[in-house]
């Protein structure tokens, strides 16, 4: 159905190593009417506290009881403090803040990885987190099975097909290592596979955490181009980055985090100015 168009496109553009055909076909299937989407993200007074729940050992508890040592009180550290956030279709939201301000934690709450300790998270639409640390790949399994695992972990095992597998391997430029164990790849190659696996999906909400700078210059260029295409066609995009230029290129709205509190919310230019003035 889209084969002809893709072929044409490739024919016209002879130096087209920036956007491979499989990815383009995926993008062409995408509904470009971003604003008619019903996707939304809404956080209401969300708190996240780290270090409140500590693990113990049964032995330790028994010894403590015998000795009569009082149970230590653990207060924990508030990483997110009363976050209220609404994101609607068409929003390209940037999250900025100093190191340790809670940016990644906020992304993980939105992605559903961290359940809020207090408050509520409501999300409508499918969600795809592209978070740098990886998808939970198994080091011993070959790439093909790891792709399958990555799909299962992001709840899209039903989309698995040999074609998709090839497309992902092709984009990551790892076809020749398809049956090699994941751990035999260099860390750059591992990052490429992670990126490619996250790339081949069409979510309503795209969540990005500093994933642009993986691999060598050529791959970074190629993945940036693909990601920009993705961003254009996804109803909601939420991005964390330390790069002000990337944020201002992608986002039309920004929130500024400071020690877990959301201190500013507004148009990108204004927020980046405030950020540069306060922390720069």
């Amino acid at each position: 159905m889209f084969g002809g168009a893709t072929l044409n496109h490739n024919g016209d553009d002879t130096v087209n190593d920036m956007a491979p055909t499989a990815f383009e076909r995926l993008m062409e299937r995408r509904d470009t009417e971003v604003h008619t989407s019903t996707a939304s993200v809404s956080l209401d007074k969300v708190d996240v506290i780290f270090g409140q729940h500590v693990y113990r050992t049964v032995k330790g508890v028994l010894v403590g009881m015998l000795r009569g040592t009082p149970k230590e009180i653990v207060t924990g550290r508030k990483v997110l403090d009363g976050i209220d956030l609404k994101v609607s279709p068409g929003d390209r939201l940037g999250i900025v803040g100093h190191n340790g301000s809670g940016k990644t934690t906020l992304l993980k709450v939105i992605a559903g990885i961290l359940p809020p300790v207090h408050g509520t998270r409501t999300v409508a639409g499918s969600i795809a987190p592209v978070i740098a640390q990886g998808l939970g790949f198994e080091p011993d399994l070959p790439l093909r099975l790891n792709i399958k695992l990555g799909l299962a972990y992001s709840n899209r095992l039903n989309q698995h097909s040999p074609d998709l597998e090839e497309a992902i391997l092709d984009f990551a430029e790892l076809t020749e290592f398809a049956d090699a164990p994941f751990q035999t790849l260099s860390s750059g190659m591992q990052a490429r596979l992670t990126f490619a696996t996250s790339l081949f999906q069409t979510p309503d909400i795209l969540i990005l955490d500093e994933v642009f700078a993986t691999g060598d210059a050529h791959f970074v260029r190629k993945s940036q181009a693909a990601m920009m295409e993705h961003i254009e066609r996804t109803p909601i995009v939420i991005l964390v980055s330390h790069s002000a230029s990337l944020i201002s290129e992608v986002c039309d709205r920004c929130v500024l985090l400071d020690h877990g509190r959301m201190v500013e919310d507004g148009p990108t230019g204004k927020i980046l100015d405030i950020y540069a003035k306060r922390y720069g």
């Binding site: 559903g112 990885i113 987190p129 978070i131 640390q133 990886g134 939970g136 972990y153 992001s154 709840n155």
Partner: peptide
């Protein structure tokens, strides 16, 4: 034993 997977996916 699946700490990393739990911290990076919403499974």
């Amino acid at each position: 034993s699946r700490k990393a997977t739990c911290q990076n996916t919403a499974m």
